[in-house]
C-alpha cells in the first residue's frame, strides 16, 4: 500500500510538471475527426456508470456521455471505443493523449481542474457521500451515529469526508476500511460495522448486494459534494465545446420534452425552441464545427438526459435511484443548461 501511494505521488508530481507540455500540442478535435471515432476512458466496472454487459458491450451513464459525443461528431453513437481505466491512471491516460475524453465518475474539484492541465466539461451526475445503516438500529438521521463503527471502502476522499463530518459534528466513530466494495458489503452484512459509507449513487448498488436489501436503509444526509462529469485536455476549446454542448443538448432536450421516441415527429413542430435544438432554424452547426443536426442525432440515438438517467441508474434500472438533485432545475433539481440559440 505504501509503495503504491508513493508511486501515485511521484506520478502526480510528474503529471503536473508534464501537463503544461502536453496540453498545448495537438488538436483533439481534428484528430478525432480524422480517425473517425472517439476514444473514451471509462471505469473498469461501476454499477450504473460503466459496466460491460453479458455481450461485452459497455453500458452506463458515463458510457452514454461518450456515445452522445460520438453521435454529435459523426452522427453515429457507435463510433466510440472504450478504454477501461483504473482510478490512478485515468488522468495520465488523458494527459498523454491515449484517450480523447475521460468519462469515469470523476469528481470535479478545484485542484483537479486547475493543476492537472484538464477541463471539466459539465456535470452529468450530482453525487455526494451518504450512509447506509441496518434497519435494526432504528436510526433515521446521521446525527445519531456517534460512536458507530463505519465500514469504508479505501479511497482517500471517502475517508476524509467522514473524518470531516464527524469532527465538525463533535461525534466519534471507528473506521474499518476495506479494499473492494464486495468486502465492504460482506463486512456490513456480518455485523462488523453499524454503518456503511460510500457515494450515494453506489450505496444503492451496494444495498442490492445484501442478501436482504430491505433490512438496510440509506440515510437522507449527504455529507459531501461530488459533481461527476466528463473531462478533456486543456488547450482545445473546439473539442471542449463539443463535449460540453453534447451534454447541454441532452438536458435542453429533456426540458423541451424531446425524447428518442418522439424526436422524429417533433421535426414538424412549430415551437421555435424545439426547431433550434433540432437545427432546423436559427443556430447553425458550423458554429461548433458539426453538422446542423448534431443535437438531433444525440437525442435520436442516445436520448435526452432523463432517458439516459432512468435507463442506467434510475427507475428503469436495477438500481432505481431517484432523480433528487439530478432532476431538471424546473423540477427542483440542479440540472440546468444554457439555451441553444
Amino acid at each position: 500500500m505504501k509503495v503504491k501511494m508513493k508511486i501515485a505521488a511521484i506520478a502526480a508530481v510528474a503529471a503536473c510538471s508534464m501537463a503544461a507540455g502536453t496540453a498545448q500540442a495537438g488538436k483533439t478535435f481534428d484528430s478525432v475527426k480524422s480517425k473517425g471515432f472517439v476514444q473514451c476512458g471509462v471505469s473498469t466496472g461501476l454499477p450504473g456508470f460503466s459496466v460491460a454487459d453479458d455481450k461485452g458491450q459497455w453500458k452506463g451513464i458515463d458510457v452514454d456521455v461518450c456515445r452522445a459525443v460520438a453521435a454529435a461528431m459523426f452522427g453515429d453513437a457507435s463510433k466510440v471505443k472504450f478504454s477501461p481505466l483504473n482510478a490512478k491512471e485515468r488522468f495520465t491516460a488523458l494527459q498523454s493523449g491515449e484517450i480523447d475524453v475521460l468519462s469515469r465518475n470523476t469528481t470535479w474539484t478545484y485542484s483537479r481542474d486547475t493543476s492537472l492541465g484538464l477541463n471539466f466539461a459539465g456535470v452529468t451526475y450530482y453525487d455526494g457521500q451518504g450512509f447506509m445503516v441496518s434497519k435494526k438500529l432504528k436510526i433515521n438521521t446521521a446525527k445519531k451515529l456517534s460512536g458507530a463503527a463505519i465500514c469504508i471502502q479505501a479511497g482517500t476522499t471517502t475517508e476524509l469526508n467522514v473524518a470531516d463530518y464527524f469532527r465538525s459534528n463533535k461525534m466519534t466513530y471507528k473506521a474499518i476500511t476495506y479494499d473492494t466494495s464486495d468486502e465492504t458489503v460482506k463486512a456490513f452484512e456480518a455485523g462488523r460495522c453499524d454503518v456503511l459509507t460510500s457515494d450515494a449513487s453506489q450505496l444503492y448498488a451496494l444495498r442490492i448486494k445484501l442478501s436482504a436489501p430491505d433490512n438496510a436503509i440509506v440515510l437522507p444526509e449527504i455529507i459531501s459534494k461530488e459533481p461527476l462529469g466528463p473531462v478533456v485536455r486543456q488547450g482545445d476549446d473546439e473539442w471542449f465545446n463539443v463535449v460540453r454542448w453534447a451534454l447541454f443538448a441532452q438536458i435542453n432536450a429533456e426540458e423541451a420534452g424531446l425524447t428518442s421516441g418522439n424526436v422524429d415527429g417533433m421535426k414538424t413542430n412549430k415551437d421555435p425552441n424545439i426547431r433550434r435544438i433540432l437545427g432546423l432554424e436559427g443556430v447553425k452547426g458550423e458554429m461548433i464545427g458539426l453538422k446542423d443536426d448534431w443535437a438531433y442525432q444525440i437525442i435520436k440515438q442516445v436520448g435526452n438526459y432523463g432517458e439516459m438517467f432512468d435507463r442506467n441508474v434510475g427507475k428503469g434500472s436495477a438500481l432505481g435511484i431517484a432523480r433528487g438533485q439530478n432532476a431538471l432545475w424546473s423540477a427542483g433539481g440542479l440540472q440546468y443548461a444554457p439555451p441553444i440559440r
Binding site: 466496472g45 477501461p84 464486495d182 442490492i208 448486494k209
Partner: peptide, 15 residues
C-alpha cells in the same frame, strides 16, 4: 472480467 461482471446492475450480489 469477473470483477466487472460483479458490478453489472443486473447481477449484483453474486460475488
Amino acid at each position: 472480467m469477473v470483477q466487472t461482471a460483479l458490478n453489472d446492475p443486473n447481477w449484483l450480489g453474486y460475488s
